[in-house]
Design a protein around this nucleic acid. Structure first.
Lengths: 257, 257
DNA sequence: ACAATATAACGTACGTCGTACAGAGTTTCA
DNA sequence: TGAAACTCTGTACGACGTACGTTATATTGT
């Protein structure tokens, strides 16, 4: 269970849903719901219990209607998730800052925070992103962070993809650890206490000298709850340093504000 | 559908499976299968049709037995996937090379290739990694790439996590695009042809000047089949440059071979 | 006022999944 | 020759997304 794919359904219908251009029907019973209410309920449910708990039946329960009523407002689950994703992207904030570095840092931190608020986002495959208002604004905002610093258009796109990809990757590790703890009811430390001794009967530590040494050091560090966010900070610094090496090598190096 | 979680079941039983220490039973009928045969069939199926096609019934079909027979050899689907992951990691090769940079590059490329051979790996959440022989060897191998270059143990772990995380993230984008094409039967270009005009009725391009400009440039580039691998090359260069800035700032900078 | 029509909401049903459970068949040991 | 240990199988349960057909409700045209 629980990866969902985006961009499945009829493009026209999906776009109408994403942009909220529902022409109010003239006849028939008053609608009891709106698509937006359904999306909100679905996001709340996914936030609270994860994407694997998100079923059409549960959403209907939450809203006090029968399962099939949902299909009056939304073509199917795939399209619903598309809208959920776009709405979640709407929480991202403008990348302000005096330097491209500060702005890219904002983009990364903003993404990191978003994935922690909505871990289910990491379970949705976005190869064909939902072309909603917030998704498009997100791209524009990210590009604005590196506009005018001396990169080609293609490089701008690549830099933005690198930074957002890194934020997603770091958040995936962090959220994954937290979810494993929640799902199993065992902390990482407890889990290692259970696995470690059993593992020792199979493994000779001398065969893996570096892993044993580093693993011990990292393991001690990682039992601290702040560990994933420190991994994020470390990686972010490296990634931005790497981008700095590229931008610094260009004629108009540091670029404008 | 289709994210699976690792590290679910009884640790002892899982480890026995991972390390293949099955004590041959004395009584009863000759087993018709082995756990390893089941794992091989499951990997072949997941390679060919994706993780969403991997069901216990399909595996049993493939092996010519009834569905429930599988449970004689494997406690459940979660544990089976743990072993699949470890076996896939067994295809990774030693990170040789004269410089840490060449070795880390090998780690990244090797991972990139592996994810393309076994896209289903990207659908498995590895917060609690399956502690099998290949997974442990993988960690040792990655660390060896940066051993003795002047980093602390913690930094070594962080650098390795950054590089492998990047390779995974880049592969996710690449594989995601390829799978979207396969699943939908439409190419990216055809998809955009369908979505673009409909989208134009909602969006005013002037509201997103940078995105329109860069998106056009990137879109033209990305219709080339080689595009994802170029994004990988670009990101890898930046990430390694960033790590170089760290290592270069250390007393014993470039380090030994 | 009333019939035509469009819409909302619902109940039922199908084929999928992982796997619990009980029983039947097979091999080895006392 | 049992008894015990093991393999294998058939059936069944409750979950899932959603196709389909029906009924209830509101507006429109007469």
């Amino acid at each position: 269970m629980t990866t969902e794919y985006s961009g499945g359904g009829d493009p026209k219908r999906s776009l109408e849903l994403l942009w909220g251009v529902r022409d109010r029907p003239k006849r028939g019973p008053k609608p009891r719901l709106t698509a937006e209410e359904i999306v909100r309920a679905a996001i709340a449910l996914a936030d609270a219990e994860g994407l694997e708990a998100l079923s059409m039946r549960r959403i209907a329960d939450e809203l006090g209607v029968s399962p099939m009523s949902i299909y009056t407002y939304v073509p199917g689950k795939a399209e619903l998730i598309d809208v959920m994703v776009d709405r979640a992207f709407g929480e991202l904030t403008a990348a302000s800052g005096d330097t491209w570095r500060a702005r890219l840092e904002h983009v990364a931190r903003d993404g990191w925070d978003l994935y922690h608020r909505h871990p289910w986002l990491l379970r949705v495959t976005l190869a064909r992103p939902p072309m909603g208002p917030n998704t498009i604004a997100k791209y524009e905002n990210e590009l604005r962070a590196v506009e005018g610093v001396g990169l080609t258009d293609l490089e701008m796109d690549s830099v933005v993809a690198l930074v957002t990809g890194f934020a997603e990757s770091a958040a995936r590790a962090s959220v994954g650890a937290a979810e494993a703890e929640r799902r199993s009811g065992i902390s990482d430390a407890q889990w290692w206490e259970a696995v470690g001794p059993a593992l020792a009967t199979f493994v000779n530590e001398d065969d893996y000298p570096i892993g044993s040494r580093v693993g011990t050091a990292a393991g001690m560090e990682y039992n601290a709850p702040a560990a994933p966010s420190r991994a994020f900070e470390f990686g972010l610094a490296r990634v931005l340093d790497g981008i700095e090496a590229l931008i610094g090598s260009r004629p108009d190096g540091a670029g404008p504000s």
